[in-house]
Simulated assay, not measured.
Amino acid sequence: MTRAYLAFTETGLALAKRLAVALPGSVARCGRDGVSLAEWASAQFVHSDALIFVGAAGLAVRAIAPHCKSKTTDPAVVVVDECGRFAVPILSGHLGGANDLARAIAAVCGAVPVITTATDAHGIFAVDEWAKHQNCMVLEPERIKLVSGKLLAGQPVYYRADFPVMGTVPAGLFLADTPEKADFALTLCPTGQALHLVPRIGVLGIGCKRGTSAETLEAAFAAFCTRYGFAAQAVTAAASIDLKQNEPGLLAFCQAHGWPVRFYSAAQLRSVPGQFTPSPFVQSVTGVDNVCERAAVLDADGSLFYPKFACSGVTLALACRPFAPDWRWQNA
């Protein structure tokens, strides 16, 4: 998490520096060295994962108000009074991690974390905070309130999980006996009206002809997702053979999705254990019988989830990193 601290007085600046030692981040004082409140907030809202204002909450609220857009994209915002008595998360408490950050700040300076989200106030399961702790993407954030609302009203909430979840199931949650009954689902393949939480564990293995455009790769990826019914948001990285490391289309495709892409030699790909879809043609060109499956499995250090899919001269496969979710939804 990248953090940025802004103080308004010398006392606040001293506290900000103290906090930054334990919870590293940039430190600035409003009005010094050309730092203005509006410009600082505008810049940090884009570039930082968390903004910590050391001063009055009203100043922070006015500074961030023009930039607030969505709970899925807004950074965490925490306000700490300059005496270090209270740490108050005021934006993105769950998905952005502001509640956890407020608790961490409180532990450093002895403050009281003032947590106002309803699920926390009542001590019940928070599905969005759980998703964040399990490294999952929330596909339909507007459905979070439906799950939380049922729990707050004392109603049962039913879930579906395509992965075993360790630990004790939180109070109020029950395993759905049919997919249609689920209020939320932990899955790579979203269907129905549940709140879908998609683990960010996928590595996309890619093979392609020389000169393949980013548009062709995009179309092939869309067809791949449709073929298997899985959420594109599950993918966090891409992998291929080193012969493709200078392919403009491949690099542009990965950059457009924000994926790091790693390249491996034929020898490295041949060394990957397992059964893969062989191609004599690919073997003759690259020196290895399969690129997409082997590259995905090697980079994920996991297992093949969806095998080779061919479309318009592009081959794709999905491997998943090891994933062991548990029922914790707050930092210990």
Rank of each mutant, 00 (worst) to 15 (best):
S148K: 03
A185G: 08
M137D: 11
Y158L: 14
M166V: 03
G149W: 02
P141T: 12
V165R: 04
F174S: 15
P156D: 13
K145Y: 00
A161Q: 08
P141G: 11
A185M: 10
P156L: 12
M166D: 09
S148I: 02
A153R: 01
I144Q: 00
A182D: 08
L146V: 08
K150R: 15
L175R: 14
A182G: 12
P170T: 09
Q155V: 08
A153T: 00
E140C: 06
E142A: 14
L152Q: 07
E142D: 15
V165C: 10
Y158R: 15
F163Q: 01
R160L: 13
K181Y: 02
G167N: 10
Y158N: 09
G172T: 06
L188I: 06
A171Q: 13
V169M: 09
M166N: 05
L173G: 01
T178S: 15
C189L: 04
D162Y: 01
G172A: 12
L139T: 13
A161M: 09
F163K: 00
P179W: 05
V157M: 12
V169E: 13
A153N: 01
L175M: 14
S148W: 00
C189Y: 03
G167P: 06
F184D: 06
T178E: 14
D162P: 00
M137E: 15
A185H: 11
I144V: 15
L146C: 08
P170Y: 06
E140I: 07
K145W: 00
F163S: 00
G149P: 02
D177V: 11
Y159S: 13
R160M: 07
T187G: 03
P164C: 05
E142R: 14
Q155T: 09
F184W: 14
L173M: 07
L151C: 07
A161I: 03
Y158S: 12
D162S: 10
Y158H: 15
P156K: 12
A182S: 14
E140S: 14
E140F: 06
P170L: 08
P164R: 04
E140H: 13
R143Q: 13
Q155C: 10
